[in-house]
Computed example of a mutant assay.
Amino acid sequence: MSTRHRAAVLGSPIAHSLSPVLHRAAYEALGLTDRSYDRFEVDETDLPGFMNELDDSWAGLSLTMPLKRAIIPLLDEVSDTAAAVEAVNTVVFTEDGRRVGDNTDIPGMIAALREHGVEKVDHAAVLGAGATASSAVAALSRICTGPVTAYVRTHTRAEEMRGWGARLGVEVHTADWAEAGHAFDAPLVIATTPAGATDPLVPYIPDRPGTLFDVLYDPWPTPLAAAWAEQGGGVVGGLDLLVHQAALQVEQMTGVGPAPLAVMRAAGERASAEG
C-alpha cells in the first residue's frame, strides 16, 4: 500500500483557492479517509526550497499562478500536453520518487465546454495572453476548426500567442486590447484575464452573443458574465473549469476514479456562496 497520502495547492495569493474544498469533498466521497489536501502560500522564490523539503508522504501538488511555468525545471518529467504550453498545474509523485508534471487545465476546459454543449466552433477569440491563455489555445486546437484571435496588451504577448498557435497547429491572429470589443463577434470567447479587466467591455456584448467562457470564479459572476447571461448568451464559468481539472487531478494523485464531479461541484458552490 502506498504511503503517499498528502497533497496541496501552491500559489500566491492562495487564500481564496477552492481546491482544498473540491479535493477533500472527492476524498470523502471516494472513502479515502487517509488522504489530506492543504494549501500553501508559495511564490517563485520560495518554490525550490519548498520542493526540496517534501518527503515520501507526498502524492501530488496542484499549481496555480505564478508557479505553472516556474515548476517545470524542478520536475523529472513533463507530459506532452503540459510541455506544449509550458504550463504545469499538476505534479504527481510516483512510487519511486519521480516528479511528473501535467496540465489538466486543457482537458478540463474541453470537458467544461462539452458539458455546456460546445463541441466544435469555426472560430474563436481569447482575451489575455498568460499561462491560462496558452492552455485555452491548446484546448481550441482540439475543438476550433478555424482561426483564433487573441486580444493582448503588448507586442511581446502578441508574439507569444502567435508562437503558441504555431506550436499547437492553430491559426492565431492577434489584436490590440483596445479592440477587444470585437472579440464578441466570435461564437466562443474565452476570457483569461484578471478580475476587473473585462468590466469595461460589457457595453460591447452583441444582441445575440455566443458562448463566453470566463475562467474566473472569485468574484462570480463577473460583470461580463452576468451581462452576457442577461443578453441570452451561454456562460461557462471558472468553477466549471476548476471542478473538471480538479477531478482529473484527484484521479491522477490517488489512482482512484472516476472522481465524483457532482459532489465536487456542490462543495464548490457551497463554499463560494459562503464567501
Score class of each variant (00 low, 15 high):
L32W: 13
G146N: 09
D185H: 13
D56Q: 10
T94W: 05
S135E: 03
T145R: 10
M65C: 04
S36K: 11
R99T: 07
D46I: 00
R4H: 11
P221K: 06
D102A: 05
G128A: 06
I72E: 01
L18M: 15
A191L: 09
G165L: 03
I205E: 07
A82T: 07
L75H: 04
T211V: 15
V9W: 06
H23A: 00
E119N: 10
T64V: 13
G11I: 10
G232R: 14
M51W: 05
R114N: 12
M253N: 06
E274P: 10
L239K: 00
D240L: 04
R4C: 01
L30H: 04
R265N: 05
E95R: 14
M65K: 12
L10I: 09
G31C: 11
L67A: 02
D105G: 02
T64C: 06
G237T: 14
L188M: 11
H182F: 14
E115Y: 08
Y37C: 02
A129F: 01
Y37Q: 10
A138T: 04
V42F: 07
A124Y: 00
A266D: 15
E119A: 07
S141I: 00
V85R: 00
A136L: 09
P13I: 08
W58N: 03
T156I: 07
D102G: 03
S17N: 10
G60T: 11
L168N: 08
V126M: 02
V189P: 07
R6C: 08
V235L: 01
M109G: 03
V152P: 10
L212Y: 12
E41Y: 06
M1F: 05
D55G: 14
V152L: 15
Y151M: 04
V42N: 14
E230N: 15
V42C: 15
V250A: 04
S19E: 11
G108C: 12
P107M: 02
S12V: 06
C144D: 04
A8W: 03
F213G: 08
A273P: 14
L47D: 01
R157K: 13
R39F: 09
N52P: 05
A229R: 15
G169S: 08
L74Q: 12
H116E: 10
V172Y: 00
T33C: 12
E230A: 14
T94G: 02
S141D: 04
L22W: 11
T149M: 05
A131Q: 06
A195H: 14
A87R: 00
A59Q: 09
V85D: 00
G275Y: 13
R24A: 10
V172D: 01
D176W: 08
S79I: 00
G210F: 13
P20Q: 13
V118G: 03
R39T: 03
D76A: 05
P20E: 08
A262R: 13
V215F: 01
L32E: 06
V243L: 09
R157F: 03
M161K: 06
S2K: 15
F50V: 09
A259I: 02
A266R: 12
A175Q: 15
V42E: 09
R24L: 13
A8F: 01
D34C: 07
A158C: 08
P206E: 09
D185F: 08
P48C: 03
V250P: 08
K120R: 12
A195T: 15
D207V: 12
A25M: 05
L140Y: 00
D38M: 11
Q231Y: 02
G257A: 04
T3N: 15
